[in-house]
Computed example of a mutant assay.
Amino acid sequence: MKALIQRVKSASVEVEGEITGAINQGILLLLGVEKGDDEAAADKLLKKILGYRIFADSEGKMNLNLQQVNGGLLIVSQFTLVADTRKGLRPSFSSGAPPALGEELYDYFVSQARLLHPDIACGRFAADMQVSLVNDGPVTFWLES
Rank of each mutant, 00 (worst) to 15 (best):
L89H: 14
A40Q: 15
M1T: 13
V76Y: 04
E18H: 08
P118E: 01
L4E: 10
A83K: 06
K47T: 15
N70C: 09
V15L: 08
L74F: 03
N65M: 02
K48M: 10
P118A: 07
R7W: 03
I75H: 01
V69Y: 02
L73S: 05
Q130G: 05
Q25P: 04
G71W: 00
S92R: 10
R7D: 05
A83G: 11
L31H: 04
P99H: 02
S10E: 14
F109L: 14
S145L: 02
R53V: 13
G137L: 06
A113W: 08
E14A: 01
G88E: 08
F141S: 02
G36A: 03
R124F: 02
K2E: 14
L116V: 10
K35R: 13
V110K: 07
D57C: 06
V13L: 00
I54V: 15
S95V: 11
T140E: 03
S58T: 14
K47S: 15
G32A: 09
A11E: 10
T80P: 09
D38S: 12
N70W: 04
F109A: 03
K44Q: 12
L45N: 05
E104W: 01
L45C: 09
F93K: 01
G51T: 11
V131Q: 05
D128S: 10
T20A: 00
L28Y: 01
T140N: 07
G17F: 09
F55I: 05
R7F: 00
A100Y: 08
S94N: 15
A56W: 07
R53I: 12
L30E: 01
G72S: 06
S94R: 14
L45I: 10
F109V: 09
A40C: 12
I5P: 04
K48N: 10
M129Y: 10
A56F: 13
L74Y: 06
A97Y: 02
I49E: 03
D38R: 06
L115A: 13
A3W: 01
E16H: 11
K47L: 12
M1C: 08
D84G: 07
L116C: 12
G123E: 10
E39A: 13
A22V: 11
V8N: 05
S132L: 12
L133C: 11
V76P: 01
D107K: 13
E59T: 13
N70L: 04
P138H: 07
P98Q: 06
K44V: 03
K35N: 11
E104G: 03
V82N: 12
E144L: 08
L50P: 12
V110I: 13
S111D: 14
D38N: 15
P99V: 08
R7I: 12
S58E: 15
L66C: 05
E18K: 13
F93A: 01
P138W: 07
D107W: 04
N24T: 13
V134S: 05
